[in-house]
Each structure stands twice: as C-alpha cells, then as structure tokens.
Design a protein around this nucleic acid. Structure first.
Lengths: 239, 239
DNA sequence: TCAAAAGTGTTAGAGGTACACCCATGG
DNA sequence: CCATGGGTGTACCTCTAACACTTTTGA
C-alpha cells in the first residue's frame, strides 16, 4: 500500500485546536504497535522516500486521525541517539493549528485511537513526545506576541470575545492562574482598540445570534491581505 | 577512523562572525568530493550513529575548519526529496555565532578550503545551501529584535560603538542602504540608554586605548545573569 | 428595571524621539 | 584650537493604561 520509507527519519505533529468552551486542546493517538503499545502519542510516522516532510505530516494526519490542518510550521528536530528504543531515529516535529470546524469533526469520530485532550489534562506520552509537546506549547505561547495566531485557530467570523479569550488562555498557559485573572494585564477594551488599529481584523455588519443576556456582539474577521503583508515584513506585535 | 554514519541524515552549519572592520561574515568550505566538487558549501556532514545532532555539528566544524563555536542553535530541517543528487538526504541546519578571537584565528589558517566571506559577497553555493544561508541570515536579523545577539558576536569587553555598529549592520541587512543610513532610525545616544536601562550591559571602568582622535571610549560587557534570566522568561526586546 | 455583555470616551502619566550641548583626546 | 568621536540633559509629544460611562439585549 504505502511506498518505501526512510528507516531513520520520522515526522511528528503537535496539532492544536481551540474553542472558548473547550479551551486549548491537543490531538493525540493511541499506539497500535510496540514499542509503547496502547500509550498515547503524537500523530506521526516514517517519511516515505519520495515525499517531502510536509507531505509526510499531512499524510500521517490523514491516515491516523482523518484531520486536515490549515496551518503547519516546522517546530524542531529531535535526534538524540537513544530517543527511540528500536534504533537511531531522527524526528522532525511540526506544529499545526486547526479551526473549530475540523476540531469538532474529529472529536466525534471513532475516538478509540484519536482524541482531543485539554492541554491541562494530558496523559503520559510515548517516547520523548512529552518534550515535543511542551516545546510546541511554548512556541505557540510565544507566537501570541509577534503573530496573529487567532487567524488560524478561530472561525472565519467571530465575536471579539473569542479572540480575547484565546489571548487570555495563551497568557495563562499551564500556569496556576485562571485565564480570567489575566484580565487585568490585558484590558478588554484597550486590547480591542489595539487590534483594530493594527488593521488585522475587520468589523463586519453582522451580529452573533444571542446566547443568554447582554448586548449582542458584532462579528469580526481577519484581514488576509494585512496578514500576508505582515508575514513578508516580519511581525512586530507587542501586546 | 570515524564511526558508522546514518546514510540519510546530515547536519550543516551557518557560522556567523562579526567585527566592525570586517562586517558580518560567514564561514564556508570548499568541497573535496563529488557532487559539487570544488564548489563552496556550508561546513557539515553525515551524522554518526552514536552522537547527538549538536555533537555532529561540533565535530564537523572541528574537522573541516578547526573552529569551535560559542553559540549553536538549531535553524531548520531541509528535507525535500531532490535536494541531493545522490539519494534522499535530510539535513538539519544550525546557526552558529563566534566571537572575533575565533574569527581571526581561522581567517589566518590554511585558507585553501575554509574561508570567511563577507555576507554581501558570497560565491555560488553547492546543493540548496544558498537557501539555508538566506534563512539563517533572516533568522539572525530577526533575533536582533528579541534577543541580545551581541553577547555571542562581540568580544567580552567592547566599546559601545561596536554594539551600535553591529545593530546598524543587522538593520541594513543585505538591502541597498549602507549601515550609516540607519543612524536616523536607531539613534546612537537613545539606543545606549535603552541598553543600559534593560540592564543587559554593564559599564566598566576601563577605556579603550586610543585609535585616532576623539574622546576614548568607555568599555562595556554583557551581564550573563541578566541574559540567563531573559532566556528563561522569554525575551521581549523591541528596539 | 435590573443584570449582563458589548462598546465608547477621556484623561494622567510613562516613556520614547529628537536634539542641543558638554567632554576628552589627537593633530 | 579645531576636528573628531564619546557622553549627558532635557523638552516635547505620542501612545497607552485605567476607568467612568453608555448601549443593547434577556429575563
């Protein structure tokens, strides 16, 4: 079925999903083979001879979890001599982000061997995947400060609070404080002004259908042009 | 002599050196074997079975150029199926920085097959090393904005202008403008105040021996403690 | 008409930019 | 004593943090 693989090179992916209700989540798969059979691990596998590294990630994600990601970025390459008990294996790790639609989709599939885990309630992981995940999480948190990550994690149209809560979550990280307790450090109204002034998000003339009491929220979307501009010129996105 | 190597994994290093007189320079080696025999390339080679990736870089640099670097950071992993004509080879690229002492040392060795090149006057490179080098240079320039790279590129004690000129060089990059023309964007005296306020550099009570006329410059050094602090907490170093 | 959520306006002060000016040396 | 490079002081002004206040909804 599959082509010839490189014996010493794998790819692994840390896939993040977010929704205001479900917090920040990571996609994990349950291993079917030894070593570490039945333990949770990052999705990934051996690279085939004729595919690029990115293609390998997309293929493995498709095979193991059925998901297709909207954003993929190389994270780090792990190559310590004894990180795999079988033999010397170098793993190129990737960081991926998905929007809530894909997010929900996978959550409702077979679920036996692929599941979303809350970042604060992770199981023990196979190999050195714990390290990989921690590094990915650090990177994601850092990205908040110089790239508009919301772009890849939120729905196309979103009320402003969603973006706000995403940022609060990132600031809180896995620390002891709840996201809410960062409201002082990241003031809701000033944060909004900042985002609008930067021109990255655009006000729409739609409002969210009501959920409970309170004034209905206007919807926003990211501006893809501005986003591309910033990618080229390098970001600088101090909160 | 050398142990068994992985057939499909190499490391390559982009080593930068800087001095105010010599500008920013990159260390290249002339290839002794096919493919691309006699072309200039990044120092690097195949990873041995029992060594880590970092160890491989240090070993290859030692073997090919005799240099030992003070700072080493993983850059990116290049794995396109056809980047090497021999077979599928994945290369883990590293970015390295050396201080002027090491810098001078190698410049005066046998020079036949290892040489420093001005970043603005590079020869044609073997494989995809042009891409690797460009990425490394971009990364280095970006680091300026959130990490005190001078730490690894300047002498332990330095007059403030050295740091200033390093930053001007980075801002200018490979663009059309001369470093001097960025003096408007990065004001000498304000820049100094900023650096001192951040606490990263410390004023010494020594002065540089004279070189031409003008008031003799006070010497400074970086504060390693502050540096470690910032590493842990994550930098945020807007100019 | 009250509570909750969203959104607007305004103000004090921190901090950065720009620049005038002073210092120390060689020729 | 002038040219050159190094270093200090400060005034203006922008930008932001903080918060009071208004709007729009559900119950």
């Amino acid at each position: 079925m599959s082509g010839q693989t490189l014996r010493n090179v794998t790819v692994d992916a840390v896939v993040f999903g977010y929704s205001p209700e479900q917090n920040l989540r990571v996609l994990l798969v349950k291993r079917k083979y030894d070593p570490h059979i039945n333990q949770w691990a990052l999705p990934g596998g051996f690279v085939q001879l004729e595919e690029s590294l990115e293609e390998a990630v997309h293929r493995e994600l498709q095979e193991e979890t059925g998901i297709s990601v909207g954003y993929l970025e190389q994270l780090y390459t792990f190559g310590d001599p004894d990180r795999d008990s079988r033999r010397r294996i170098i793993s190129v790790a990737y960081l991926a982000l998905v929007k809530p639609d894909a997010f929900e989709l996978v959550a409702s599939t077979d679920a036996a061997d692929a599941r979303w885990f809350d970042i604060r309630e992770l199981p023990e992981l196979a190999f050195d995947h714990q390290n990989i995940l921690e590094l990915a999480f650090k990177r994601l948190r850092n990205k908040v400060f110089y790239e508009p990550i919301g772009f890849e994690l939120l729905d196309d149209k979103f009320p402003f609070v969603h973006l706000y809560h995403l940022y609060l979550t990132m600031l809180a990280g896995d620390g002891p404080l709840q996201a809410d307790e960062f409201e002082a450090q990241l003031e809701r109204r000033n944060f909004k002004r900042l985002m609008l002034k930067r021109g990255l998000i655009v006000e729409l003339n739609e409002r969210r259908q009501q959920k409970g009491s309170g004034r209905p929220a206007r919807l926003y979307r990211f501006d893809p042009e501005k986003y591309e501009d910033m990618k080229k010129e390098g970001f600088s996105f101090e909160l």
